[in-house]
Design a protein around this nucleic acid. Structure first.
Lengths: 340, 340
DNA sequence: GTTGGCACTCAGGGCGAACGAGTGCCAGAA
DNA sequence: TTCTGGCACTCGTTCGCCCTGAGTGCCAAC
């Protein structure tokens, strides 16, 4: 199917259907797009497109609707990314530059993305597991209670409270702090957890218990509560614009509650590599009516997390793809700056 | 309207309508509830109830539906809190006790509450502004970059990065840390911000710039990014069970995106004081079809935040009220323990 | 004050006709 | 070949109609 005009027809059908949400007929097509041929000709083309599975007719006397395969071709061959307007670029820059910390970056991004695309936006929190330990801090709140603070290269911070068996002297605390940092600072999280595990063997006997207590909390903070399993969601109100409530809105609303499902939806596309999953191409059969546009983000090609939008298969792919890419790039840049 | 039986009739109408979502007629009423009188008698009572505005007839040949005023009377006079089952109590205890930090408590609570009530749950993050400063920590990441960490009595932690004009010596950093803690530790946030502001006048001249930089970031962390303006939401999928999409679901979905709106919805009810706002009683006319059940929480009667559920006016008030109160009490207890 | 009887109202469902958007096909023009 | 205008055909949608039945209000009797 190399026919240029048939591709034009498909593109026109997708664009019209996305805009009107109604099956599009041959007459309306030639009127709204300057195709330069008659409706009859378009009808012939449509018959071929249908035979090849790119479009579909809900019933005999109706217009045509793109199939998932049709959207796929549209995205792969026909769509050019809508460039972001200057105003949109400015909005991205000013909003994200105002973020005060890592969580704030995520919250602002997800909100921004949902506003730009008028879809449901999802942003995965950056993976701590890929980052390195920048510093470990111990603060004695009382002689037997120590606040353990883990600071990561991504700007993420985890804190935990440790209850000690007996009181600890300030000097011992400083010593322990130094030992912890020597073992872990600058080291990737997985390696750091390992190094810390061996630390208890190297300290003075009377420090062993305390060290063990602190280390166990630290390693737990590193592995157990992995922030990369958290996601932020925004724009659910945009679901209200969906047509079919039961087949489209309800399953998606349910999916949005399950963060595990969301993570699977987002997938693991590389940094700066846009993934578009259309309808049944996704991992969940209940979500056969929704598409996902996602990409990875992170500084220097290092994949720290994914972000994207979900919406009806009948969505504005060029616009969504452009917005997702723009936001991902900006987030990557911010993470990069914070990383110096 | 002191008639005991009329109140019984109203209670029966509310319960039936909540269960079936359909206007309830006189015959069905006497059948399902053991009222011991004939339908005709009930009809007379219903006529009076309607005259007084407690119930309403959608159209002539239909049954009755409670009005907001009817629900109000039901909640005030007729409803007894459904006690939580043992299993529910256990679920609350085990789930919330497993929380690792303050944010986790909030996330778990909101999820729990939405599951218990099968409604949309909202939990406000605890107000930092009411808590006291427990400790301020400074960590030199590089000679000119300092991580400022603010630890609060509620267990909340805020961190910020400060870029200094020139390098700072370890000794000076320790000195500054001591000064900061002396000025703010144990002090309420508002007072602490004030005390810190005066600190720059008291340090050695060569420390003034550094002090000012750190203090400005600290006070900003204290006031600007107030976590009590953040809320967590869960259970939006439950909206799918609503009947009327346009009048009930859409406005609520939109409201859920606006955290300011949510905070206003939750209101500022005292700790252990349940607030029920029914339909038009709330602050937003678009949300005339939704009710809010909320309460404050916090240790020792100290109001740190609010939590609650929102749903259709046609909701299970006794069940929601019981769940909201149970979760709030448990959260309060956890905050209290963390505070020792 | 309560009850059974009865006429009345009216939303909702089922049915059929008219409508019209859109199609497929075919013969003729380019 | 490829495109075009014409035409008969399909079928979902809309509208008007009637009928049904749940539920009511009122009244006379208990």
């Amino acid at each position: 199917m190399v026919d240029e005009r048939k591709l034009d027809v498909l593109r026109a059908i997708v664009e019209d259907y996305v805009a009107t949400e109604e099956p599009v007929g041959s007459k309306a097509l030639v009127e709204r797009h300057g195709l330069g041929v008659s409706p009859a000709t378009v009808r012939n083309d449509m018959a071929v497109l249908e035979e090849e599975g790119y479009i579909h007719q809900p019933h005999t006397s109706a217009g045509r609707v793109p199939t998932d395969k049709g959207y796929r071709l549209f995205v792969d061959k026909l769509a050019t990314l809508k460039p972001m307007s200057a105003a949109e670029r400015r909005a991205i820059a000013t909003l994200l530059d105002g973020a005060v910390d890592l969580d704030d970056v995520v919250r602002r991004s997800v909100r921004l993305l949902s506003q730009l695309t008028r879809q449901v936006a999802i942003v995965q929190y950056p993976a701590l597991s890929r980052s390195t330990v920048r510093h470990v801090e111990l603060v004695a709140l009382t002689p037997t209670r120590v606040m353990v603070i883990l600071i990561l290269s991504t700007g993420g911070v985890e804190q935990r409270l440790v209850e000690l068996d007996g009181p600890i002297a300030d000097g011992d605390l400083a010593e322990l702090r130094a030992a912890l940092n020597q073992a872990s600072a600058g080291v990737q999280i997985a390696a750091a957890a390992k190094a810390l595990g061996e630390l208890a063997d190297k300290v003075r006997p009377e420090q062993v218990d305390t060290t063990k207590a602190v280390v166990s909390v630290l390693t737990e903070a590193m592995s157990d509560h992995r922030s990369d399993e958290r996601v932020a969601v925004s724009g659910t109100a945009n679901l209200a614009r969906y047509g079919d409530f039961d087949t489209a809105v309800r399953p998606l609303l349910e999916a949005l509650e399950e963060h595990v499902v969301l993570l699977k939806l987002l997938g693991e596309s590389g940094v700066d590599a846009l993934t578009v999953r259309i309808g049944h191409e996704g991992p969940y059969s209940e979500l056969a009516a929704t598409s996902v546009v996602a990409t990875g983000y992170g500084p220097q090609e290092l994949h720290l997390g994914s972000l994207g939008v979900v919406g009806p298969t009948r969505m504005d792919y060029p616009g969504s793809m452009a917005a997702v890419r723009a936001v991902a790039r900006y987030v990557s840049r911010i993470l990069d700056e914070g990383n110096q």
